[in-house]
Write a protein that binds this DNA or RNA. Structure first.
Lengths: 131, 131
DNA sequence: TATAAATATTTGTATATACAAATAAAATCT
DNA sequence: AGATTTTATTTGTATATACAAATATTTATA
């Protein structure tokens, strides 16, 4: 169980990384960026829940995207808002294309049916497991 | 797909880490150690294939276990042989217990049936995906 | 046999992620 | 209103893993 779930995740990661190479982003960065484009002003907490990553990890992802001039943060009290830059907004179609490419890549190997089933069962099971 | 496979792996990792806390080893270290105990003199290449980790990762795992006086390496030409120390051999029953504990932990949450099914389908799918 | 190619391992470096502690602001309580 | 607790975020630090380059040895080739 341990090794297979890790090995699977690493293999999927590799396919994903490949699909997002075109825009020079890691999959995590890309998904976070798309979330921010869709929800300008979203807060790190919300991103953390959505992406199932620790808040500290979210901070680190945002920092990197800020360096690349794709995001900006504004600070109001204890809350931080994250906004996409114009540069990021322009990228959106390319990002969506990567999502599609990624889906195509793995479903070409696994078949659409099996892919969907796997995603569903992993989702169901991940939900059962404690956070 | 990307996030669910990662999230699942991280959750499983957490359960595993918990089970191996007792012996103060990470799951990867523990599995490698058990492999070496079962195959004294095994070479890093073989461990790499078995554990589906890069050779460099194997080196790093071995280094740490060597520091803990659980493994030793001998060098013959380009080949390295890895042996368990007596200290490691004595640990074997405890290690096996951790394997059992780990299995108990996740199958208590998911049910034995569902766990087995998941492992099988992940295995089947990981096999299909390129290395 | 000398050179080239292949192989096994290690090293240098980079990445993603996490946990725990620190910070700072907001909300609650008394 | 002041003190305390809770909440959101960031920082410091550690871990597992990978890729690519370096090293060293063996095998194959010319």
């Amino acid at each position: 169980m341990y090794f297979v779930s890790n090995a699977l995740a690493r293999k999927i990661e590799k396919i994903a990384r490949n699909a997002w190479n075109k825009v020079n982003l890691s999959p995590s960065h890309a998904y976070l960026l798309m979330l921010v484009i869709d929800n300008p002003g979203v807060q790190p907490m919300a991103l953390s829940e959505e992406l199932q990553l620790q808040p500290s990890t979210i901070t680190r992802l945002i920092e990197k995207l800020e360096l690349k001039k794709l995001l900006v943060r504004t600070y109001e009290g204890k809350v931080t808002n994250v906004y996409p830059t114009p540069k990021a907004k322009i990228m959106l179609p390319k990002l969506k294309q990567c999502v599609t490419d990624f889906y195509q890549s793995y479903s070409a190997i696994l078949g659409k049916d099996e892919s969907t089933k796997l995603v569903n069962s992993m989702n169901r099971i991940a939900d059962k497991l404690p956070v």
